[in-house]
Each structure stands twice: as structure tokens, then as C-alpha cells.
Amino acid sequence: MRKYLFTIIALIVATLFVNAQQVVKKVGDTISTIKLQSTKGDVYNMADHKLKGVIIVFMTPSCDHCIAYEKRISALHEQYKKKGIPVVAIGPYGDNEKDYPYDAMPAMKKLAEEKSFTFPYLADEKFKYTWLFDIRQTPKAVVLKKLKEGFIVTYIGNIDNEPDEKRVPTIKYVEDEADKVLGKSVQ
């Protein structure tokens, strides 16, 4: 009897553990929206905007690689927002000022003001979207295409193939994907 009881308890615990694991989104998966606190003080909800798609960039104020990409990220936003695919940046540590003071909301607000970001810069809540898209370093991009209900993930990865801000990228992954979302052929 004890053996059966132990087996049943073990199965229940294992089932709860598996169900508690975060499901990671991959290319082809869908998401209903992203809704997070903005550096402007409001809550930004993608579902509230008329979009053809979204370029999400995970970035932090203290990351050297993110700093090197700031101009390119702003240029992406300017290039694609008019076409219906704006940039929305997410700070993975935005809600954790205690553990990440150089990357939390106050630092994000300061950066957004200093650099005059025209795109929303959102603070992730307990790494919800950072984990959802399996982001392990910054900057990383996710391209979403708008569907009737929600968005489909079309790309997760690097912005381009050149992390050195002094060099010109030869492959622009996010631009190529955004053009595909818009129905343009990519060479």
C-alpha cells in the first residue's frame, strides 16, 4: 500500500513540476499580446495598437553590446514604424531595481530620455517575456506578425551580423524578416 501511495504522490509532484515550467515560444508559435509598464509611466499593450507586426528588442542600459546597437535600433524603428512594424524594446531587469540597479526602470527611463527614444521601452515583469522567448543575452530581437487574433513569432535572434558599431553589417536579419512580414521579397 505504501508503495502505491508513494508512486501516486511522485506522479502528482512530477505533473505539477512539468505544468509549472515556462513554455518557450519558437518561430511559428503565437502570442496574444505583450502588456508591460513603459518608461513613460503608462502600461503599453500591443493589442491596443494598429500594427502589421512588431520588432521587439531585448536591451539593457548597461550592456556594451546594447549601447553599440542603440543607433541601429532607433533607425529600425524610424524605418519600420511608418510601415506598421514599430520597435518595442524590453528591459529584462526593468522591475528589479534591488538586484539590477543599472538596468532597472530608473536606468531605463534615464537612457530613454538621454537618447530620445521614440519607441516604447518596457520593463519586463519577473522575466516573463525574457523567458517566454528564451532570451539569454542582449540585444536580441523577436519579430512578430499580426494575425486576426494576436501575433505569430516569425524570427528570434540577432539584429544583424555585425556587433561592432564601427562596421557596417552585411546581413540584416531583422530588416529581412520585417520585409517578409510586409510581403516584400528578400534577396
Rank of each mutant, 00 (worst) to 15 (best):
M46D: 13
K26P: 04
I159Y: 05
V168D: 12
K172V: 00
K83G: 03
K3E: 15
Y80W: 02
I56N: 05
G94Y: 10
H65C: 01
P101D: 01
F58M: 04
A104L: 10
V57S: 11
K110I: 03
K172S: 12
A14G: 11
F119C: 14
K83Q: 14
Y93T: 02
D48G: 02
L16Y: 14
V143F: 08
D179E: 04
R167M: 13
V27K: 13
V153R: 14
I67S: 00
S62A: 10
K98Y: 12
D103M: 02
H49Y: 13
E78A: 10
V18D: 01
I159Q: 03
K146E: 03
D160V: 04
R2D: 14
F119E: 10
Y155E: 05
T33D: 15
P61E: 08
R136W: 09
G84W: 07
T39C: 07
K115V: 00
K40P: 06
K109L: 06
M105P: 02
T130L: 09
M108S: 05
A47T: 08
I34G: 09
L144D: 03
K98V: 12
F151C: 08
I56P: 10
I90Q: 09
V143H: 05
K128A: 13
Q79P: 00
D160E: 12
F6H: 04
I85P: 05
N19I: 13
D103K: 01
T7C: 14
L36A: 09
M59F: 07
A112P: 13
F127D: 11
R2C: 14
V168A: 13
D164S: 05
K50T: 14
L111T: 13
D179F: 07
M108W: 06
E177T: 00
D64V: 01
S185C: 06
V43M: 13
H49D: 14
A68R: 11
V43R: 11
T33H: 09
L11F: 14
E125S: 10
P106Y: 10
Q79H: 08
P169L: 03
G84M: 01
N45E: 03
D95K: 05
A14W: 12
M108R: 08
G41F: 09
H65N: 05
L122K: 03
L16A: 14
P169R: 05
D160M: 11
Y44A: 06
V57M: 02
A89W: 11
Y129T: 06
L5Y: 11
K166G: 14
K146M: 08
D48N: 15
K148I: 08
Y155C: 04
A47D: 15
L5D: 00
L111Q: 14
